[in-house]
Design a protein around this nucleic acid. Structure first.
Length: 585
RNA sequence: GGGGCGGUAGCUCAAUGGAUAGAGCAUCGGUCUUCGAAACCGAGUGUUGCGGGUUCGAGCCCCGCCCGCCCCGCCA
């Protein structure tokens, strides 16, 4: 039997073929193969139950018929049993486990395997994530989009997709009038030299407060905005400076999180493209004027038949509905994308539902092909009081402060646990562990739910944390260091897997393909996180029970192979989530 | 008022319509002369908010109710 990356898919196909030769009526039977509870096997096929029901047949008898029709190579590779009302259980035989491990010994082989079974392989996918506003520091509210978005990008790329990372920054809007007003009057050049973004942030507050206190100031600020939009050279120069400074500061954060965008096109870029959107929407009868604004209603929708999608404000200005529509059109024309994913706060669900509905009708009426558009929503980061996470004084927590604190906390632990390492290495470890802990805390839970941000749990070495996973990786490298071998060496002459912990670890390793597949099709990275945690747990149990560096050469060889493959899968998986890994910690 | 999401062990969270609902934390008890104890092994903990329904099978799907968070015309 050819060893496929995903054994569940092998079984799916084999069962489909068996169903044909067993005389199951075509089309009505779906094998429904999935990973199983290890107590029952590695995979289970549940499809016989539904099929037997539809045919008014006894499910166990049907299952037996199906199993009897399975190809001999499948019978040889799996222990097949029928259980309960008609589940078919498959346990991978140890020789097949070892063959899979031999066939997937490098990151390239894993990636090729993932691409070979992914329907997204070869497709172009645009991921719209992070998207902060310029002139402001990134804060904790920007964390999830960046972290989840990057993980999704890496998963898609691993599965063979061409990924376009697009940072749709908020660089256009009414706030720039107030900011420019204050910049011209109250710029603190010394503060600007120290930290320009911080100074812009201060100036915005100055402008905003002054506008609120004095209507005359508000008017002046609005004039500054009008001048900017009319292309006034001075205001445009200030605005450009704001963008430059902001992007430079954002990149510091992105570097820590391992993010590199392919394109950064903000709202300003689409400013001259919204007129065409208004015209087309009006021409094809989708948009109408209501209370002075240009709006789209969806009569077939229970809510959006009365809740308008405002595509142009009554003062004639664009809003994010306008630019988002223009952006869809631009992206479709620019890239032949199969889909666009928006990694945005779930509170904006209504907006995206209206956006997608509108875009769908607009494209249909204008004869364009609409790509798959999907809102990858995520919940709020809460403090331990259950309310959105803030500083004690009620301010947003800046991302740079958050990551710095994570690093400091990790540093204290490294100093405590690994005092013997050189200072520079301890600091480097602290950065990987600290930042990785923040990333992993976010990625280890279902993105759609809110989650409670708790430092102690996050940096902790117990439980489903980055530190636990990184520690498992470091211990494996430690074994190879001790034996003066590189991972992958010393595997020749391996004997057959034997002990329960060896076999349990190998069974888990093979399931990497299922975890990647699940995380990528659902676009939920936590499925991969859960898998990696379980894998690290299996490794730790194996490590405790079975000594690797034994004198018996065939035994050592097979255990070295397990170690090397575990490190490979853990490192590959952690990198897919956007984390860096270590060989010592 | 309309709508979205959620409610699972004391706490934080998992669970693709499948088998006896699982982890971690916390609690208690074991395991370091042996590859890193940042670890491992073991123990108890559940009316899956409530009530109906669909299904061979429901934490998951449908209906009603309770509670929490969020959204609902010109911010994004």
């Amino acid at each position: 039997m050819e060893i496929m990356f995903n054994l569940a898919l092998t079984l799916e196909k084999a069962l489909q073929a068996a169903a044909v030769s067993a005389g199951f009526s075509g089309g009505a039977f779906a094998p429904d193969v999935r990973t199983a509870d290890p107590r029952h096997g590695d995979y289970q096929a549940n499809g016989v139950l539904a099929y037997a029901k539809s045919q008014k047949q006894n499910p166990r008898a049907m299952a037996e018929k199906l199993v009897a029709a399975l190809a001999p190579d499948i019978q040889g590779a799996f222990a097949v049993t029928i259980a309960g009302p008609g589940f078919i259980n498959f346990s991978i035989k140890p020789a097949v486990l070892q063959a899979w491990l031999a066939a997937h010994a490098t990151a390239e082989q894993l990636a090729q395997g993932a691409a070979s079974v992914s329907p997204k392989s070869g497709q172009a996918w645009i991921v719209d994530y992070s998207s902060p506003n310029t002139a402001k520091q990134m804060h904790v509210g920007h964390l999830r989009s960046a972290v989840i978005g990057e993980a999704v990008c890496r998963l898609l790329a691993f599965c063979g997709a061409r990924v376009i990372r697009d940072n749709h920054i908020g660089d256009w809007g009414t706030q720039f009038g107030k900011l420019i007003w204050a910049y011209k009057r109250q710029l603190d050049t010394a503060a600007f030299a120290r930290d320009p973004l911080e100074e812009f942030e201060r100036l915005y507050k100055v402008g905003n407060n002054a506008s609120e206190a004095d209507p005359a100031v508000l008017k002046e600020a609005q004039q500054e905005l009008v001048k900017l939009q009319a292309g006034d050279a001075e205001n445009l120069a200030i605005w450009r400076r704001i963008s430059e400074v902001s992007l430079t500061a954002f990149q510091v954060i992105y570097d820590q999180l391992g993010i590199k965008f392919d394109t950064t096109l903000g709202e300003s870029f689409y400013n001259d493209k919204v007129e065409a959107v208004y015209r087309e929407l009006a021409d094809c009868g989708l948009a109408e004027v209501s209370q002075g604004a240009l709006v789209v209603f969806h009569p077939e929708h229970p809510r959006f038949k009365t809740q308008p999608f405002i595509v142009r404000k009554s003062d004639g200005a664009a809003n994010y509905a306008s630019t988002d529509l223009a952006t869809i059109r631009y992206r479709v024309e620019q890239y032949q994308a199969s889909g666009v994913l928006y990694v945005v706060d779930k509170r904006q669900g209504d907006h995206f539902e209206q956006l997608f509905l509108t875009a769908g009708k607009w494209f249909e009426k204008t004869g364009r092909k609409l790509p798959h558009l999907e809102h990858l929503d995520f919940g709020t980061v809460l403090g331990e009081n259950g309310k959105p996470l803030k500083t004690r004084s009620g301010e947003n927590i800046r991302l740079k402060d958050l990551l710095a604190e994570a690093t400091e906390r990790a540093r204290r632990l490294v100093d405590e646990k690994s005092a013997e390492l050189p200072e520079a290495e301890r600091q480097a470890i602290a950065e990987v562990v600290g930042v990785g802990s923040v990333q992993y805390a976010d990625l280890s839970q279902n993105r759609s739910s809110d989650y409670v941000f708790a430092w102690d749990k996050m940096i902790s070495l117990d439980g489903n944390t980055a530190a636990y996973l990184l520690y498992a990786v470091a211990r494996i490298h430690s074994i190879f260091r001790k034996l003066d071998l590189a991972p992958g060496a010393g595997e020749a002459g391996a004997s057959a897997l034997e002990t329960p912990t060896e076999i349990a670890l190998a069974r888990k390793l093979v399931k990497f393909s299922d975890a990647v597949q699940l995380a990528t099709t659902q676009l939920r990275p936590h499925f991969l996180g859960t898998y990696l945690y379980e894998l690290a747990g299996e490794f730790s149990a194996f490590y405790t029970a079975d000594k690797v560096a034994v004198d018996d050469a065939p035994v050592r060889a097979r255990r070295l192979a397990l170690c090397a493959r575990t490190a490979l899968v853990l490192e590959t998986g952690l990198r897919l989530l956007g984390l860096r890994t270590l060989t010592r910690m």
